[in-house]
Design a protein around this nucleic acid. Structure first.
Length: 408
DNA sequence: TCTGGGGTCCTAGGACCC
DNA sequence: TCTGGGGTCCTAGGACCC
């Protein structure tokens, strides 16, 4: 097999920066005297009794606790742990701070999630006066820690895939760089489930073929991989296990969707409660939308039934909207439609907004003759006034009359 | 041990237009 | 008479990630 010069560009210098137990770190920094002193700390578990662990302290991990584990299970394994909710706003703020520092240290920075970033250092060799990639990684780690108090681990290599896996060996608070030419050997240590992009479903299929580790896949001829996993899938797997990943580091794309959802503490059948919660999620999703100065054309309602099947229904409008009134009008009929298809108890309800556009602030005149508008200027104005009130007096200051509980 | 909430990307079928 | 093919948009569902 010939080496593809693009796929195996050994001159690429990519770093993967990952915040160590990010949610735990942030919770501690926000409350140094309280939670900051608790070694056994679990962050998450929002849905009263039905939550999962979002992040566990390294001390708690020694008890077998890991993220995505139901909180009830985690507390059985580690009964002395302290549980705190995810400090969402502080996490977003700290993430932006880390991102800001990285952008001053590398020409291209891609935010892969709230706590992970890829850096492409191509073209900085002269500037850095021959500093090794490992040296750069250490310097970046120190700079981030100084400037943001956030401890990160850094992986490096000639591809994003390799850099990300290397971070796993760097954690916590270290650096691991795979030298050019060593990618193939480096890959041999991994179980297939550890390869980014291989999830539970693919893992099952692989297992059924007797494939569990990278070493298992390496000797399999490409034609078999293609026969089993399709043209694209087979080639993808062939490349992955060899550490070949041509994906470029791209500075972050504009947002594509905004959503808000909630799992009920107990399953719900009552249509009134469902509708009230739908309104709550609509309020929260549209507020987030407006905060980002966006409008949406597509509204999606998501339901998770008691048996954990997830269903959704969506509708795309001709014109983008931003007010809760306009979105709720659509969401309500979508909920009715979903309930018509299948009634029964509901575990989760959510509202998603997509087909996003940046809003222009000029007032929209009646461009569309007699056509019915999905949203009036009045509705938009009201929504923005409400945003302002919430900002000044708190999130709960202004709620639509319909979701204020009797007696509140 | 029953399984959160925020996202992204991909696929496949049908509508509709040329 | 039988039967075109491609492109784009929309919807539903699923896999995957942190």
């Amino acid at each position: 097999m010939t080496e593809d010069p693009v796929a195996r560009d050994r001159s690429r210098r990519i770093l993967h920066v990952d915040c160590d137990a990010f949610f735990v770190q942030v919770a501690r920094l926000e409350d140094p005297e309280g939670v900051g002193r608790e070694p056994l700390l679990l962050v998450g578990g929002s849905a009263e009794g039905r939550g999962v662990v979002t992040s566990a302290s390294y001390e708690a991990r020694r008890y077998g606790v890991h993220s995505a584990m139901p909180m009830a299970t985690a507390l059985r394994l580690c009964p002395d742990a302290t549980v705190v909710p995810v400090p969402r706003k502080a996490c977003a703020r700290r993430s932006r701070a880390v991102h800001g520092v990285l952008e001053r240290l590398a020409p291209v920075v891609q935010a892969a999630s709230i706590d992970e970033f890829y850096l492409d250092l191509a073209g900085t060799e002269r500037l850095l006066d021959g500093e090794s990639l490992e040296g750069t990684a250490r310097r970046i780690r120190e700079r981030v820690l100084e400037a943001t108090e956030i401890s990160v681990s850094v992986g490096g290599g000639t591809a994003k895939l390799v850099a990300k896996l290397a971070t796993g060996l760097a954690k916590p608070g270290g650096v691991h760089v795979v030298p050019p030419g060593r990618e193939g050997a480096f890959m041999r240590r991994w179980h297939l489930g550890e390869i980014p992009g291989v999830g539970p479903a693919l893992l099952e299929t692989l297992k059924a073929k007797g494939l569990e580790t990278v070493e298992d896949v390496l000797p399999v001829e490409e034609r078999w991989l293609v026969e089993w996993f399709g043209e694209a899938g087979g080639r993808w797997l062939r490349d992955r296990v060899r550490g070949i990943d041509p994906a470029p580091v791209e500075s972050s794309e504009p947002r594509k969707s905004v959503s808000s959802e909630r799992t009920f503490p107990r399953d719900v059948r009552d249509p009134e409660i469902l509708e009230r919660e739908l309104l709550r999620q609509t309020v929260s999703a549209t507020a987030a939308l407006r905060k980002k100065r966006l409008r949406a054309r597509t509204v999606t309602v998501k339901l998770r039934d008691a048996d954990f099947t997830t269903r959704q229904s969506s509708h795309t409008l001709a014109e983008p909207v931003e007010s809760e009134t306009a979105v709720f009008a659509v969401a309500r009929t979508l909920l009715d439609e979903l309930r018509r298809r299948r009634a029964g108890a509901v575990r989760l309800i959510g509202v998603g907004l997509s087909s996003l556009q940046e809003r222009e602030d000029a007032v929209q005149l009646g461009l569309f003759g007699g056509e019915a508008r999905a949203e009036s200027d009045r509705e938009r104005t009201i929504a923005r006034v409400v945003d302002d009130l919430r900002e000044r007096f708190g999130e709960e200051a202004v709620l639509p009359a319909r979701i204020v509980e009797p007696g509140e």
